[in-house]
Amino acid sequence: MSFPEHHLYWTLLSIILVISPEAKDSLKLALDRFKSNLIGSGIGLICFFIEGPRVWVILFGIILAILVCHWLNLLSVARSAIVAMIIVLIFENELVTWTGALERFFSVTLGCLIGLGITRSTSFLLNYLRKHADLPQEKL
């Protein structure tokens, strides 16, 4: 099984978008970013099938992503949803089919899962060290 190199870029970008280095509310922020990335990539996949000038389809997707994030009280991370939507809508010259959009959707989803896993595991490790190894508490 091979993993196309250009899709790895989308996975890495999604990991970076989900990871939250700040200690304060990092788990909640990472989870919210995870949700917004899934919203955006799902909207991007839907928009891929809409016929019409791409600029109008992208504009429609941006508005839809903002509205969905607003309805789900995730407006603070709506930018992540928009980026994920645009990633899914990007066309490569050699892969202009729905399978390309689907592969980018899965690349973004994989990146979100990895980023959330990194944030959760480092949070768990830091909390464990603070409790058992006298690691000083971070001042927020």
Rank of each mutant, 00 (worst) to 15 (best):
E92W: 13
E22T: 14
I15M: 10
C112E: 02
E94C: 11
L13W: 10
D32L: 12
L8G: 12
G115S: 11
S14K: 08
I58R: 05
E51H: 08
L74A: 10
V18H: 02
G115E: 01
G42H: 05
G100W: 06
H7M: 12
G115V: 00
I87M: 09
I39D: 06
A84M: 05
V57S: 04
I50V: 04
N73F: 13
K139G: 07
K28N: 11
L72P: 08
K28F: 09
E103L: 12
E22G: 14
L72G: 08
S80N: 14
I87Y: 03
R33D: 03
L135H: 12
V88L: 07
H132Q: 06
S2L: 11
L95V: 11
L29Q: 11
G61F: 00
F34L: 01
T122N: 10
R33S: 09
L135E: 13
G117Q: 01
N127R: 13
L110A: 10
F49D: 05
V55A: 15
K24T: 13
R54C: 08
L125G: 03
Y128D: 12
G61A: 07
H132K: 09
S41H: 01
P4M: 11
G61I: 00
F49P: 06
R120W: 09
S123E: 13
K139N: 15
I16A: 12
M85Y: 00
L72V: 04
D134V: 04
C112A: 09
V18Q: 03
R120C: 14
H6D: 13
N127Q: 15
G115H: 03
V88F: 01
M85N: 05
F48Q: 03
S123K: 06
V83D: 06
F91I: 08
N37L: 10
K35T: 12
A84C: 10
L12Q: 06
A101D: 01
L67W: 08
I66K: 10
L140T: 10
G61N: 02
I43F: 04
A84K: 05
R79P: 03
K35V: 13
N37M: 04
I86Q: 02
L89F: 01
I19V: 09
L29K: 12
T109C: 14
C112I: 04
K139R: 15
N93E: 15
L140D: 11
S41E: 02
V77Q: 04
I82C: 05
R79F: 10
S76I: 09
A30G: 07
S76H: 12
L116G: 08
L135C: 06
L45E: 01
I90Q: 15
L89T: 04
F34A: 03
I118R: 05
P4K: 09
F60Q: 07
I15P: 01
L126P: 03
V96R: 12
L95Y: 10
L75H: 06
G40K: 00
H6V: 12
L29N: 08
S80M: 09
L64T: 14
